[in-house]
Design a protein around this nucleic acid. Sequence first.
DNA 1: ATGCCTGCAAAGCTTTTGCAGATGC
DNA 2: GCATCTGCAAAAGCTTTGCAGGCAT
Lengths: 133, 133
Amino acid sequence: MERQDLRKAGLKVTSPRLKVLQILEHSQQRHMSAETIYRALLDSGEELGLATVYRVLTQFERAGLVSRNNFEGGQAVFELADRTHHDHMVCLETGKVTEFFDERIEVLQREIAEKYGYSIEDHSLVLYVRPKK
Amino acid sequence: MERQDLRKAGLKVTSPRLKVLQILEHSQQRHMSAETIYRALLDSGEELGLATVYRVLTQFERAGLVSRNNFEGGQAVFELADRTHHDHMVCLETGKVTEFFDERIEVLQREIAEKYGYSIEDHSLVLYVRPKK
DNA sequence: ATGCCTGCAAAGCTTTTGCAGATGC
DNA sequence: GCATCTGCAAAAGCTTTGCAGGCAT
């Protein structure tokens, strides 16, 4: 239940927070910008401010409930952090986002970082693709 | 010679364009934001506007003379497009940017895109790392 | 009761753009 | 000479923040 998630994160259970969580859980698209979430809520008759959506998403991110992706195109997109690590593929024609995970790439990345005397804290891999003709 | 590069790109040879190219060629850091380039030029006594730096960089990018990287932290960084394709590693402690290339990762990426019926148009791989203790 | 939230409006930051004058060819 | 540039200031787009009132507990 979402209320627990919020409490566990030290956040009071408020209407805007529940609404945003619910949109992220039940919307057909898994990856949404703050603005998209905001509009979805307005359209379903909810009253809240865009600033609140941003604030709530930032708190959720810090709490580990959602993750933020900076794809090309200005707006960050958020997704529920209910899955294990994965990377993304963005279709340049439809905007569709596909998630994928490949352990071999993960291993190679660690190997490369190590070769330079580093260890990986975080990484970002995005493929911008087009349907193959 | 830089003047040729500019002409070839259909750009008039102007002072701001030459200056920006020279900074990119001769600065100790290879990856610079528009603002950093702008400051470097001001500091060396050149007169030009920040808007011009942005305009010039965008034109250079379109002409294939520089490439733009969107690392975390708001500002895009530019580098001379004088090398073959490579990816980046950014040290979270020093900000140092290291370039690397691994054909195995490239192959895996193509393989994955293909599995989903796509072909890769572009991709972005950035490792955020820390010195290994 | 009180400390955490929210909405609104304003501000912040990076980047882009309109316009009038300047400059390369 | 004329199209292309440049600088300046203003605008744009996304996101954050200050503040005064509102709500959860």
